[in-house]
């Protein structure tokens, strides 16, 4: 083996090995093996649900609402979700997950979500939800049977889903609602009260519109 070969043999072999190994790693995606990056909340997102009826409506409404709120606040949907979920027992104030700005953004996000669902035709008619709502409502038997007997067209003309939802969202104490995230029963009760009140208000407003 010549002197030159002794000087350059091993270095050349080493350069070939290192370039080969690092090159193969990079070609196969090395350097980009990182956690999923959150999507831009201001880009329109398709939201689907595996549930049906009121559960599906609620899920889609919440997912779109949080997304809209995140867009307004300039944070990712995931960051806002984590903030809201992790602020379980925190007191309200001007800063933190449940600051007035965040609560307002969330409420506005939910209201915008109702408009989005109405626009894309995915908002169910009130008559589609009545049976399910009555199953879980604590009404006297006679009244429940009477409502079930109403024709769908009458229910749909008397109650607009978007109007009921918007009234319920306006009525809801979102700060208290977020405090009850861990307690499903409290959460459901709070939503039920708000929806029932919204139905009453919507019907009253409809009647007022009918009066001369």
């Amino acid at each position: 083996m010549s002197g030159l070969q002794r000087w350059i043999g091993l270095p050349v072999a080493a350069v070939v090995l290192v370039v080969g190994v690092v090159g193969v790693q990079l070609v196969n995606g090395g350097g980009t093996y990182e956690p999923l990056k959150p999507a831009d909340p201001c880009v329109e997102r398709t939201v689907t649900s595996r549930a049906a009826g009121i559960d599906a409506l609620t899920e889609r409404l919440v997912l779109l609402g949080v997304n809209n709120a995140a867009c307004t606040l300039g944070v990712s949907r995931e960051a806002l979700t984590l903030e809201l979920a992790q602020s379980g027992g925190q007191s309200s104030g001007q800063s933190g997950a449940r600051s007035d700005a965040r609560i307002d953004a969330l409420r506005q996000g939910l209201l915008t979500a109702v408009d989005q669902m109405k626009a894309d035709g995915s908002l169910p008619r009130a008559s589609d939800l009545v049976d399910e709502a009555l199953d879980s409502a604590d009404l006297n038997g006679l009244l429940e049977r009477a409502i079930r007997a109403l024709p769908d067209s009458l229910i749909d003309s008397a109650l607009k889903t978007d109007d009921v939802l918007q009234r319920a969202i306006d009525d809801l104490d979102l700060r208290e609602l977020l405090g009850n995230v861990d307690d499903q029963d409290d959460l459901q009760q709070q939503v039920e009260v708000a929806v029932t009140q919204a139905v009453k208000d919507s019907l009253a407003a409809r009647l007022r519109d009918l009066l001369p």
Binding site: P11, A14, V15, L17, V21, V22, Q25, G30, Y33
Partner: peptide
């Protein structure tokens, strides 16, 4: 050089 190259390789695994 080989140790340095190996460590760069370990820093960027594709999976």
């Amino acid at each position: 050089f080989l140790v340095a190259g190996g460590l760069v390789g370990l820093a960027i695994p594709p999976s």
